[in-house]
Design a protein around this nucleic acid. Structure first.
Lengths: 156, 156
DNA sequence: CCCCGTTTGTTAGCTGGCTAACTAAAATGT
DNA sequence: ACATTTTAGTTAGCCAGCTAACAAACGGGG
């Protein structure tokens, strides 16, 4: 009656995501884009000019992490910071022209890879998978909140 | 006719895995075990005494990465290196008693989390998901090999 | 008006992943 | 038997993620 993690579904899922990441890196290697940046570029392509805190929240990363990434990307000329006029604490992040070009390439790479990844899948299967992922996410989030924020049921 | 990565299934899957990792980190925080180590400990619990290269291959990590991890874990007293008697280049990695204790706790945490993650899933659904993950893995691996090792069809 | 708490962002220092360049030991070949 | 190549592991230096401690700007209360 042993639990064998090597057969766990989350373990298999981790391997798939690792392989996906390796593929992304291969496809974007000719641009000045590093491993963590595609997801950030996709977010910026969608909505430019967010403040860093909000941007960090959207891509599920801590503000401190984003600071370093943005600084690097600014040096590469992919993005630029512009201070907010009203609130001097805030700096808003925008894509440069070079950034927009890189974003286009990254988006195409991700599109191709998504196609390849689900080759042979029916639309119905993809919908089923999406539903499962949502349920997993809910389960994990509930578990996390229950453990870290035992604010509910304070007594008894 | 735009591709929107925020709706991509791999994107959703990445979020699920991130949340999973956050939960693992929460559950093991009281032990001298760091984020990348659970998967390594699980492997060692399964088969002790592997040479580093083989161990790296099993957990899908480069040998250089493993060197640093093992060195740190050796300092923490979780594992120990023993030189191979026949081949002086090889060092084999073993769990210590402390390592075995930590492994037990990690395994329990992963078991609980796996249960929570798939709460509400039927056995059939889990089998379906497993099949999908295998197909995704195959698709991505095939794509990677086709691109990086165009050894097949050398001409024409 | 000024002090104090809050919010935004940065810096420092850690783990973990990678590649590239290196060392040392073993295996091979002439 | 010696030189060469191959293999295992390490080191250095990079990017990405985190936490903790900090600086600077905003805002509200007395």
């Amino acid at each position: 009656m042993e639990f064998d993690y090597s057969t766990a579904l989350t373990h298999a899922m981790g391997h798939v995501m690792k392989l996906h990441k390796k593929n992304v890196e291969y496809l974007i290697q000719d641009y000045d884009v590093y491993p963590g940046q595609p997801i950030l570029l996709m977010r910026l392509a969608n909505t430019d000019g967010l403040m860093q805190k909000e941007l960090a929240r959207r891509i599920q990363v801590k503000p401190a992490t984003l600071t370093v990434m943005i600084t690097r990307m600014e040096k590469c000329g992919l993005v630029e910071r512009r201070p907010d006029e009203r609130d001097q604490r805030i700096s808003r992040v925008f894509l440069t022209d070079k950034g927009r070009l890189a974003t286009k390439a990254v988006k195409e790479a991700l599109r191709i890879l998504e196609l390849k990844c689900f080759e042979g899948f029916t639309d119905e299967e993809k919908i089923i998978l999406q539903g499962m992922l949502e349920r997993m996410h809910n389960n994990l989030e509930t578990f996390y909140l229950e453990n870290t924020e035992p604010s509910a049921e304070p007594n008894e």
